[in-house]
């Protein structure tokens, strides 16, 4: 009963974030429970090709006679996997670079930031296309590419926050008391950069999922027969005039996932940092 009340209050106070959390919760549940929820195996060619939605195949079948619903359910796993791993790469590398170069400053800082500037001087998707194109099209390479492309965002954010935290007197006090660099970073700096980084991570999950879908759509990411939403959309569009469901439903799934993370990120921003409440 108490839990219920708490939930209702959260919903009332932060409707946007709560809506996002609900969407993402559903997405994660679907991904985890995919084998239980999906009526068929995602690669099983079990029916006639390009059948419209029916009770047997709620979202129809694709060009190989595979059940669209099952493929979309399993596709959530790929999207979440790529999102988490790619953002994980960007987050780990970016925060480490930003934290160290902001904290120690000097020549290393200068060099690291110039490198970040260089990566930043490419439009993200174009750089990701070039990297996957060169490494060879695959899910792993797309994930790595997305991770690299978003590293500077985290590095800059972490560095900026570190610099502002270091201005505070409590850091000077800690230093005067003989605290080591590692301790100051752990106790004083990290907790302070956690909030903006959390918001950025959530928002980046949405862009990473979108980027994976885009790369797969262009044939550079997930390879068939693996059920990535982007790949389904990319191959399905050839049949869209006779079988629109093949192109409509995977796109809808992408949009819901992206919307979920966007809403959650907006909501988290309101909760964690009221000053940032803007766009």
């Amino acid at each position: 009963m108490r839990d219920n009340l708490w939930l209702r209050r959260l919903f009332l106070r932060h409707p946007i974030g709560a809506m996002g959390a609900a969407l993402i919760g559903t997405l994660v549940a679907v991904a985890l429970l995919a084998p239980l929820l999906a009526p068929y195996r995602p690669a099983a060619q079990i029916a006639q090709r390009l059948q419209p939605p029916s009770p047997a195949h709620l979202l129809g079948t694709d060009e190989f006679g595979r059940d669209m619903l099952s493929r979309i359910i399993y596709g959530s796993r790929i999207s979440i996997f790529v999102g988490l791993v790619a953002v994980g790469i960007a987050l780990t590398a970016g925060v480490a670079i930003g934290l160290l170069s902001g904290y120690f400053g000097g020549r290393m800082d200068h060099l690291a930031m110039r490198v970040m500037d260089i990566i930043f001087s490419f439009p993200a998707l174009i750089l990701a296309i070039a990297i996957t194109g060169i490494l060879g099209p695959s899910l792993t390479n797309a994930t790595i590419a997305i991770g690299i492309v978003y590293t500077p965002t985290f590095a800059r954010l972490a560095r900026g926050t570190v610099l502002s935290v270091l201005q505070h007197e409590y850091v000077t006090a800690a230093r005067a008391l003989g605290a080591s660099d590692a301790r100051i970073m752990r106790v004083h700096v990290l907790p302070n950069i956690a909030a903006p980084i959390t918001v950025q991570t959530t928002l980046n999950l949405s862009t990473a999922i979108l980027a994976e879908a885009a790369l797969s759509f262009l044939g550079l990411g997930t390879q068939p027969p693996d059920p990535s939403w982007g790949t389904m959309l990319g191959t399905g569009r050839r049949y869209m005039e006779s079988a629109p469901w093949v192109a409509v439903f995977p796109g809808l799934a992408i949009m819901m996932a992206v919307l979920g993370f966007n809403l959650l990120g907006d909501g988290l921003r309101d909760i964690l940092d009221p000053r940032l409440r803007a766009t």
Binding site: A214, L233, G251
Partner: peptide, 22 residues
Amino acid sequence: GLLGLSIPNFWLAILLLLVAAR
């Protein structure tokens, strides 16, 4: 605005083509 932010542009492109054709 939120919908526009979340709609993948390649999907929107396909939908527009679909509507135009149908």
